[in-house]
Design a protein around this nucleic acid. Structure first.
Length: 265
DNA sequence: ATACCGACCTGTCAGC
DNA sequence: TGCTGACAGGTCGGTA
């Protein structure tokens, strides 16, 4: 589910609410898929630890704990990390609850169980480069050798981390580039345009609190608003906001891909 | 070395 | 009303 703007919104909300708080105890559910670290290591690392900072790296939420360890959470497609009061009802598919000294709880809920939790000691860097920090020159160097379709390359987290299906489609529309174009075949001008478009779109989406397509909500349970600004994602057979042509939907790299056949070349 | 493709899961919705 | 199949914001590992 959540891509960079959604994870950024969640991480910022978590930081506001739990930075400085301490984890008193941890409950872990019975399903093993969400756990990348052994349950006993998760419990041992989290219990008694103080949360110093919560931030986003790629699509990961990183809790920096005292004693130098980190709690890393990836939300997969349907994961949520919610701040809840102990009295509130436990949602279906709750896999972990961290009780905090303040009396609140952090709850990890994930119906499809594609999300992942782990604890680690060394600093987590993420698999690729940060889309909002990379320079235009580095961005061009990242893609100009790839034989993959530019859409697939944008989704490759080892190159850029944080971009997912929605923002790949939206940034290719703004840069007026067809999703199936081979990355290495793009001109410097086109890659520069894509770099600008991607950074603009990600910043606009963060300002709108992310996109709520089916069930995304932030740490406080609030939906995002950027879905109302989508130009192509989810708009197949609807008129392009710029030229009026009907938006097409195809499959690129195994993912549903939306584009305007007239604006994008 | 690179690039597709299915598998991993549950929920929802369209179509019959 | 109820069943079936397709599809979903992501990632990984196997295969070609």
């Amino acid at each position: 589910m959540p891509e960079l703007p959604e994870v950024e919104t969640i991480a910022n909300g978590l930081h506001r609410h739990v930075a400085g708080d301490r984890i008193e105890s941890v409950w872990i559910g019975s399903k093993p898929e969400p756990l990348k670290s052994r349950p006993r290591d998760i419990v041992k690392t989290l219990e008694g630890a103080k949360v110093e900072r919560v931030r986003r790296v790629g699509k990961h939420i990183v809790f920096d704990l005292d004693r130098g360890s980190q709690w890393i959470v990836h939300l997969g497609m349907t994961g949520r990390m919610l701040i809840a009061s102990p009295e509130s009802e436990q949602a279906r598919h709750t896999h972990l609850i961290a009780r905090l000294t303040s009396g609140r709880e952090l709850r990890f809920v994930d119906p499809r169980r594609f999300g992942r939790l782990e604890v680690r000691r060394e600093s987590f860097q993420g698999p690729g480069s940060e889309p909002l920090k990379i320079s235009s020159g580095d961005f061009q160097r990242l893609f100009h050798k790839s034989k993959a379709a530019i859409k697939a390359a944008l989704l490759n987290q080892k190159l850029l981390h944080g971009v997912g299906n929605i923002y790949a489609d939206e940034s290719l529309f703004r840069a007026a580039i067809r999703p199936r174009r081979r990355a290495y075949a793009l001109t410097r001008t086109e890659l520069s345009r894509l770099h600008t478009a991607l950074q603009e779109i990600l910043k606009e989406a963060i300002a709108a609190g992310g996109s709520s397509v089916s069930d995304y909500v932030d740490a406080e349970g609030v939906a995002g608003l950027f879905q109302f600004q989508h130009c192509v994602y989810g708009r197949q057979d609807e008129p392009c906001r710029r030229c009026g042509s009907l938006i097409k939907k195809i499959v690129v790299g195994g993912r549903g891909t939306h584009y305007c056949p007239r604006c994008q070349r």
